[in-house]
Simulated assay, not measured.
Amino acid sequence: MSAPSADRAPEAAGRIEVVLRKAGRTKMRYAADLLADDGRRITVRAPWASPGVRDFGFVRFAPGDVLTEHFWRDRWYAVKEVRAGDGTLKGWYCDIARPAVLTGTELLSEDLDLDLWRSADGATVLRLDEDEFEQSGLARTDPEAARAALTALDTLEALAAGPAFRELLS
């Protein structure tokens, strides 16, 4: 058996380190269990990695929460299923990000400021942080990436509004 290539994880087992970058800096780094890697989508599971509670107004992330995170090598977003410690589904937090890169056991995701929230019942879909995206200057410094990010947000919003969203994650 040959060694895995730099852009393909070992078979879906083991631990990896997720590295979230934003504006050229590492925002967060955490260990996660690798659940699946089909060569296109990488799925990991990890506990809420930030200390304390983060209240967004529409959802609260807290210690004990567990996130099942889906990253794509060919899509400009990542989808994170958020569950409370007791298993109750809170919803999905989606980051608009450059396609993920997996090198060995390190998964890199570069956040592009835009986000989307879908509630557990699917009744609420919110576009988030469009002001941060505008202020980031990405449209000026990398117009192609800015267009890809906005297209990804529109695509993800359309998926989140209907039954195709769950199919995206299966």
Rank of each mutant, 00 (worst) to 15 (best):
A3K: 10
S5C: 14
A12S: 13
A13P: 03
G14M: 08
R15C: 06
E17V: 14
V19C: 13
A23E: 11
R25L: 09
T26D: 13
R29G: 03
L35V: 14
L35K: 02
V44I: 15
R45G: 05
P47M: 10
S50Q: 12
P51F: 12
P51M: 13
F58W: 12
P63F: 07
P63H: 02
D65M: 09
D65W: 03
L67S: 04
T68S: 03
T68H: 02
E69G: 08
R73C: 07
W76P: 00
Y77D: 06
Y77W: 15
A78W: 01
A78D: 10
V79H: 01
K80C: 08
K80L: 12
R83V: 08
T88C: 06
C94G: 01
D95Y: 05
G104K: 05
L107S: 03
L108M: 02
L112N: 03
D113Q: 08
L116P: 01
L116Q: 02
D121V: 03
T124A: 11
V125A: 06
L126W: 06
L128S: 05
D129L: 02
D129H: 05
D129E: 13
E134A: 15
S136D: 10
T141I: 11
D142T: 09
P143K: 04
D154T: 14
D154G: 15
T155N: 03
L159S: 07
P163V: 04
R166M: 14
L169I: 08
